[in-house]
């Protein structure tokens, strides 16, 4: 067909028509394996009407490429899962506590000061004898007495006790009371309870001594954490 815009020579037009009389080779009904696969992917046909012939170019098959991709993906995922599992097992094994091979009881030659550290002795470990416990407790008490001067809690109590001991050694505490009252003339008169407390320094001294002993014992007990061994 000659377009009006581009006129063709009559003889050339005839030659063109002669060429058109030669029809091209028809598209084959039987496609190769590759052609059939792609044709199905595009949705042109739903059912093959002929059996596919052998494909001479299997390396260009998209199906084979997809298979290799799937194999590679499955292998990669499997390897990743195996790696995670092995690392988890290894971490679990390394973090597992080691069982005790022997008792960590305090050896006999340990010093008293060293025994003040927290006792991690196993419950199943053999109990020390009562004599050993007594020696350890005595050593701890001695160390407390030596360090009491520098103790923030006990030092004020000890100073007050010393003052009361000196006061108890005097014939009477009335002078002290009068002096104290005289130095503060605006102070009111003490009530009966205060009078009784001030007039019995010996009983207060005894109670303070008991208090001091109780505090020392309490401190000893607090520092000697394992009460079962006391």
């Amino acid at each position: 067909m000659i377009e009006p815009k581009f006129p063709m020579h009559q003889e050339l037009d005839q030659f063109e028509q002669d060429l058109k009389s030669l029809t091209p080779k028809q598209y084959p009904d039987t496609l190769s394996v590759q052609a059939k696969t792609s044709y199905h992917d595009a949705g042109f046909v739903t059912k093959p009407d002929t059996l596919p012939v052998a494909d001479n170019h299997p390396h260009r098959s998209p199906t084979a490429n997809r298979t290799w991709i799937q194999i590679a993906m499955v292998s990669w995922v499997t390897g990743l899962a195996a790696g995670i599992l092995l690392s988890a097992i290894w971490t679990r094994v390394m973090m597992e506590p080691v069982p005790l091979a022997k008792s960590n009881a305090i050896p006999q030659n340990i010093t008293a000061a060293e025994s003040r550290f927290p006792n991690t002795k196993s419950v199943l470990a053999p109990q020390p004898s009562a004599l050993d416990q007594e020696d350890v407790l005595a050593a701890i008490c001695r160390s407390i007495a030596i360090n009491s001067d520098s103790d923030v809690v006990l030092r004020p109590i000890m100073q007050r006790n010393a003052f009361l001991v000196n006061a108890a050694s005097l014939p009477s505490t009335s002078r002290i009371d009068q002096a104290e009252l005289g130095s503060h003339p605006e102070a009111k008169e003490p009530d009966a309870n205060d009078h009784n407390r001030m007039t019995s320094p010996a009983s207060e001294f005894n109670s303070l001594r008991n208090l001091q002993g109780q505090r020392q014992l309490l401190k000893t007990l607090l520092e000697f954490e394992n009460l079962n061994t006391i």
Partner: peptide
């Protein structure tokens, strides 16, 4: 040497 494949792929591209 396999013009059928080329034609087919061209029509597939046209459909897509």
């Amino acid at each position: 040497k396999t013009p059928e494949d080329a034609v087919q792929e061209a029509f597939i591209d046209l459909a897509n």
